[in-house]
Design a binder for these strands. Structure first.
Lengths: 226, 226
DNA sequence: ATTACTAAGAAACGAGTAG
DNA sequence: TCTACTCGTTTCTTAGTAA
C-alpha cells in the first residue's frame, strides 16, 4: 500500500467521506492534497482500484465514499498513533449490559478450527462453543467505543473451500462480582460484525450462562483489559 | 514535509524513540520500513536535517530520538485521526485540583500583546494578567491527559526583537460550583511547558482568585470543553 | 559490520490533449 | 467545466563503492 494512497485516503476521511458519500472533483481534491489535477485524479482512480473507496462519476465531478476496507486501513494507522501517544493511559474499561440470547451463530463460529486455534494461541483458552451476548445501554456503549480505538488481540480471517471467514479482535476481560474472578474470558469484536455496536460478545472456556447461573435480562458487568 | 519522512518518523516513534534514544542501524531500520539500506540511511539523514530527530552516530549504528519538533509533527497527524474516528464522543472532561501559587510568569506571558491579541480573537476575552494554577492528583492527571489528544484552540508562537515565544493550545472551560457558571475561562497548555503535567493553568477575563474568594489549597473543579 | 557517496534505473509527477 | 489519457521531466530508489 503506497503511502501517498494512505495520505489521500486520510484526507478523504477528513473531508467527511467516511460517514456518507461526498461530492468532489479532481480539481478540488488537488487543492486539498496540494498537487496537480492529474495526480489527484490518478489517486482517486488508484484508491478505487485498490477497493478503498466507492466512486461514482457524474457530469461535474464524482461522489466518493470510503469502503469498509478503506476504513479498516485507516484504523490501522490510527492504532499506531494510539500506541505512540496513549499506550498505557487506561488499563481497563468497565462495560455493563443485560444478558440476551444471540442468534446462535456464536456457537457456529467459535467452534471453527480456524478461529479455535487462534483463540488458544492468543487468548490461552479454547472457547466453549457459543458467546455470551450483552445488550448495552448508552453509557456502556460509550465505554465500548474505547475498544474501537484499540488494536486488541488480533484474530485473523481465513478461507475454507466454501467461503471466507472474516477477522476481528479480542480483549481479555473478567466478569465482575458473581465470584467469576477466576474465569478467563474475552470480548470479541469481528471486523464486519453482524451485531450493531450495542451488543457485546464474550467468549470463555466454560459455559458462562450456567457457570454463573445467569438468565436473560440479568445485568452482567465486565472489566475489559485494553 | 514529504510523506515518506512522516512515515519514517512514525515508525521511529513506534520503535520507542519518543521517550528515549534507541539504538538502531540503517540496516535494521531498512527492515522496519521495508526498503533498502540506502533509502533507510537517507531517511534518517533527512529526518535529522529537518530537525525531527536527534542523531548520534557510533561505530555500529546510531542513537536516534525524536525532537520536540518531531513529536509535534506526529501529534498533528494524530489529531487528524482523532478527528476522523473520535470527533464527538466526549464533550467535556472534569478536572479537579488544589490551588497553588505559580511562579509569576503567567502574569508576564498573559500580558504580552502577541498572546493577548490571539486570546481575544480565539477565546473571546482578554485575560486578566496571571494564571490560576491547579495542582492535580493522579485521577485528574489522567483526565488532563485527554487534552493532549485534542487539537484544542491553537495559539501561535511569535517573535519579538529579543526572543521567540512558543505556541500552545487552549480549551474553554468553566469552574464548577462556586457560582462561577457565568465566568468564561480557558485552560492553557503551552507546547513547551515550564510546568510538569500535574499543573493546570487557567486564564480568565477576571481575577479568579478574588472573584471566587479562593486561597492556596482550596479545591477547584473545572469542566473542560474538548 | 557501519555511514555516505554516486550514478543508473524505476516510479511518480504534471503539462498538454481528447472526449 | 469534468475525467482520462500520453509523454517528457523531475524525483525517488537502489546497486555499487569508498571510507
Amino acid at each position: 500500500m503506497s503511502v501517498n494512497i494512505m495520505v489521500s485516503l486520510r484526507k478523504l476521511a477528513l473531508l467527511g467521506a467516511i460517514a456518507q458519500p461526498i461530492k468532489l472533483s479532481s480539481g478540488h481534491f488537488a487543492e486539498a492534497i496540494k498537487s496537480s489535477v492529474q495526480t489527484a485524479a490518478r489517486r482517486l482512480q488508484e484508491l478505487e482500484r485498490e477497493g478503498l473507496v466507492h466512486r461514482r462519476i457524474i457530469a461535474d465531478g464524482q461522489w466518493i465514499m470510503l469502503t469498509n476496507k478503506g476504513i479498516e486501513q485507516l484504523k490501522k494507522e490510527c492504532y499506531e498513533y494510539q500506541e505512540i501517544f496513549f499506550s498505557r493511559t487506561d488499563i481497563e474499561v468497565e462495560i455493563a449490559g443485560r444478558l440476551i440470547t444471540g442468534l446462535g451463530e456464536g456457537k457456529y463460529y467459535t467452534a471453527l478450527e480456524g478461529y479455535k486455534r487462534q483463540f488458544e494461541a492468543k487468548l490461552g483458552f479454547i472457547p466453549f462453543p457459543g458467546t455470551l451476548n450483552l445488550s448495552l445501554e448508552a453509557q456502556s456503549r460509550a465505554a465500548r467505543k474505547k475498544l474501537d480505538a484499540r488494536k486488541g488481540i488480533e484474530i485473523e480471517g481465513f478461507e475454507s473451500e466454501k467461503r471466507t471467514f472474516g477477522g476481528g479482535k479480542c480483549f481479555l476481560c473478567k466478569i465482575v462480582e458473581k465470584e467469576a474472578g477466576g474465569i478467563k474470558s474475552a470480548v470479541i469484536i469481528p471486523d464486519r460484525t453482524h451485531y450493531p455496536d450495542d451488543v457485546l460478545e464474550i467468549i470463555s472456556p466454560v459455559y458462562l450462562r450456567h457457570e454463573l447461573q445467569l438468565k436473560d435480562g440479568d445485568e452482567v458487568r465486565t472489566k475489559v483489559v485494553i
